[in-house]
């Protein structure tokens, strides 16, 4: 009796999980497919393309013919690399110091950091601070306000605390000073955790656009996500990238629809995320389960 129930349950739950997975996957496939067609196919098939018949990279070629996308991509790479490196450095400093159990004043120092998870100054006061420090329109406006991530400090601090104390003691007996201890022993031990945190911070930097919207008027440092957002609200994207001067400019085979251009932008904006996703997945599955085991 219960065996039959189990079979029904397995069938139903497999169907639901499969359905939800398709619901996640189909929009992604649709976006990619739409980015791979020219205007001819788009017209022929009434704009409904789950799989391109004549895949072409024309949308990508057009987007990269202009300088805007390239400039936004390089600005994003700079802010992501610089931002991730600095956040990781500062977060590690904070976590390392706070992991020293015997440090006088450790509790208030920890409290000092954790309070900011609960209360913040809000949009306008933070904007005024950035403005008064003359950071507007510079890449530092995208990096300095988020220089330490309080949650990551907590995670990394716990990681340092779990490194066996004997390791530290034997190093001190061997005559290692504080600098040697930190750089030669503790940080290498914490490298996997730092790599995981770095990946998450990097993804956050790659994805952010709201700070650029607030702090940058000048489009020189506009990141790719903000460019995508602006191009989605532009009604001229089709004309912008289908300009005359191209051979047979009005033949739909040589043109690309505004929809395909937008979908190509979405793919460009996600491609790096998809590239690091396997590493992310490895880390968060492992990390989350370990965290749960510890309670």
């Amino acid at each position: 009796m219960s065996n039959g129930n189990e079979k029904v349950y397995q069938a139903v739950s497999s169907a639901i999980v499969l359905g939800l997975t398709l619901l996640s996957a189909i929009p992604l496939i649709y976006v990619i497919s739409m980015s791979l067609v020219n205007e001819q196919e788009w017209i022929d098939r009434g704009g409904f393309i789950l799989w391109p018949q004549n895949p072409t990279l024309i949308a990508y070629e057009r987007l990269f013919q202009g300088t805007a996308v390239l400039q936004a991509l390089s600005a994003t790479v700079v802010r992501t690399v610089l931002g991730t490196a600095l956040v990781l450095l500062m977060t590690t400093l904070a976590a390392y110091v706070l992991s020293k159990r015997n440090l006088p004043g450790r509790k208030p120092m920890l409290f000092f950091i954790l309070v900011t998870i609960l209360i913040g100054g809000g949009l306008i006061p933070t904007y005024l601070v950035v403005r008064d420090l003359h950071l507007l329109d510079s890449v530092w406006a995208l990096i300095l306000p988020g220089l330490v991530d309080s949650w990551s400090v907590l995670v990394l601090k716990q990681f340092f605390e779990n490194i066996p104390g004997e390791l530290e003691e034997s190093a001190v007996i061997d005559g290692a000073g504080e600098v040697t201890l930190m750089c030669k022993i503790m940080i290498p031990m914490a490298a996997p955790a730092m790599a995981a945190i770095g990946l998450f911070i990097g993804v956050a930097h790659w994805n952010s656009w709201f700070d650029a919207l607030i702090y940058l008027d000048d489009s020189k440092w506009h990141p790719i996500q903000l460019l995508i957002r602006n191009m989605f609200s532009s009604s001229e994207i089709g004309a912008q990238f289908n300009n005359a001067g191209q051979h047979n400019a009005f033949n739909p085979v040589n043109r690309v629809s505004a929809e395909s251009l937008k979908m190509a932008l979405v793919v460009i904006g996600t491609l790096p995320i998809l590239c690091v996703y396997p590493f992310l997945q490895k880390h968060f599955m492992k990390g989350m389960y370990l965290g749960a085991v510890k309670g």
């Binding site: 996640s24 993804v203 937008k262 979908m263 995320i273």
Partner: peptide, 20 residues
């Protein structure tokens, strides 16, 4: 597959909603 969209920015999510 189900975890992927979590790592997309809201701009990308808007793009996907637009596509749909």
């Amino acid at each position: 597959i189900l975890y992927i969209p979590h790592f997309f920015s809201w701009v990308i999510i808007y793009g996907i909603v637009f596509a749909m």
